[in-house]
């Protein structure tokens, strides 16, 4: 294992990952042994178990792998419903879930999208845990 000394500036922790994301940088873990992309980065590779995980910038462009339109939302997001959520396959091989800024009727599997980052809304801050309040929110925009 090589991840001794992890602290909140390390992108293999959530604070480190979201700090970079707030600056517009999407960082992924890339397993030095098998190449698996890990989003967000973490100390261990789920594919092979290695703890030799590099952190590398990831393309923010990708394609819709699957999607849904949420009608019955959790209470914290009820005012947003209906909204679209997708799993996106990014150009560098990782997959990430996020909201899509389009009606589901205008989305299809394979559609090109791009990850963008915004500040959390007041409503989102209200339901955030104390340590999450500064974290940005990522969304996918059709391109």
């Amino acid at each position: 294992m090589t991840d001794g000394g992890l602290d909140a500036t390390d992108p293999r922790t959530l604070p480190g990952f979201f700090d970079a994301l707030a600056d517009g940088d999407l960082l992924g873990g890339v397993c030095a042994d098998c190449g698996q992309v890990l989003l967000p980065p973490r100390p261990a590779c789920y594919a092979c178990g290695s703890h030799d995980v590099d952190v590398e910038p990831q393309s923010r462009e990708g394609r819709v792998f699957s999607y849904t339109e949420i009608h019955a939302a959790p209470p914290a997001f009820a005012a947003d419903a209906p909204y679209t959520v997708a799993v996106v396959e990014l150009a560098d091989g990782g997959r990430l879930l996020g909201r899509v800024t389009a009606d589901a009727a205008d989305v299809a599997i394979g559609d090109p999208v791009e990850l963008t980052v915004r500040e959390p809304t007041a409503a989102e801050r209200e339901v955030a845990l104390e340590y999450e309040t500064g974290w940005p929110v990522h969304v996918f925009e059709p391109r």
């Binding site: 999607y67 849904t68 019955a72 959520v85 599997i109």
Partner: peptide
């Protein structure tokens, strides 16, 4: 929590992603 919950997923929506695929 970090990615999925903050994006507003629900149990049905998670399975809906599988169903769509």
């Amino acid at each position: 929590r970090a990615i999925e919950q903050r994006s507003g997923v629900t149990a049905p929506s998670q399975y809906a992603l599988l169903a769509r695929r």
